Computed example of a mutant assay.
Amino acid sequence: MKTLLRILTLMGLLGPLSAGWLPREIGEVRAYVYDYTQEEGNIALLKNGKLHPGIINVGGAKLSDDQVERLKAALRSSRERQPGALCYMPHHGFVFFDKAGKPMGHIELCFQCGNVDSSPKGLPDREWDWKAIRKLLGELKVPILGKSPDYTKLFKERAKAKGEDD
């Protein structure tokens, strides 16, 4: 039985993105960058089915099937998770949509401290492959900036360019 479970896991059939983490089959995945400071008391990329109001790349960047598979592999890293710093200022995430286009879960990441979160809960406590995730975001032209104020500045610049001044 253990051998069968290992084979299914290696084949990707029992990985964290298929074995009960999400309630339905994945229709598409989109990558987002956001300024979590745009809503006080809420740093979650997705809350009650709604995206954070600080989204910088409205609409997100849709991942190809190959990119979704590489993201899954990056989340299945087998190294033990190393605790990150105590800060948690996520600016990047991936939202998983079902076939009907409804958001059903997300992961969010803080490149500054190395901490992560997901909803629903249930992804294994493993060290994700940050290098692979960084590469995916680069391919999708989703910026990874230096510090939190850089994201606030980018959010305001994009809002101003769209005529959404404060």
Rank of each mutant, 00 (worst) to 15 (best):
P143Q: 09
G20C: 06
V33R: 00
L140S: 00
K156P: 00
E139F: 03
S119T: 06
C87F: 08
L154I: 03
L109S: 08
T37F: 02
A85H: 09
G20Q: 06
W21G: 12
L71P: 08
A73V: 00
G146S: 14
E108S: 11
F96V: 09
R24S: 15
P149A: 13
L46A: 08
F94G: 02
A44Q: 13
A159F: 01
S78D: 07
L22M: 09
V142T: 05
Y34C: 07
I7P: 01
M89R: 14
G59P: 13
G12L: 04
E108T: 09
H52T: 13
A132L: 01
K147H: 10
E157Y: 03
A61M: 04
L45S: 03
V68Q: 12
P53R: 06
R81S: 06
S78T: 15
S78N: 03
L17I: 09
S77E: 07
Y88G: 05
G49Q: 06
Y88Q: 05
V33S: 04
L109N: 00
K156V: 04
L136H: 03
A159K: 11
E39S: 11
S18M: 11
P16M: 11
G105E: 02
L45A: 08
R76V: 12
L109W: 03
Q38L: 13
S78R: 14
P120W: 09
G60I: 13
K47N: 15
K50Y: 05
E25A: 13
G59M: 08
G101L: 03
R70C: 07
F155I: 01
R6K: 12
E40C: 02
K2I: 15
L136E: 10
E69Q: 14
E127W: 00
P120A: 14
F97K: 02
H91A: 08
K135R: 12
E39N: 03
R70E: 14
D65Y: 14
E157N: 01
G146T: 05
K131H: 05
K47C: 11
K72T: 09
Q38N: 13
K99M: 09
V58E: 13
S64M: 10
V33F: 08
K141R: 14
G146C: 04
W128Q: 04
K156G: 00
L140H: 02
L10H: 06
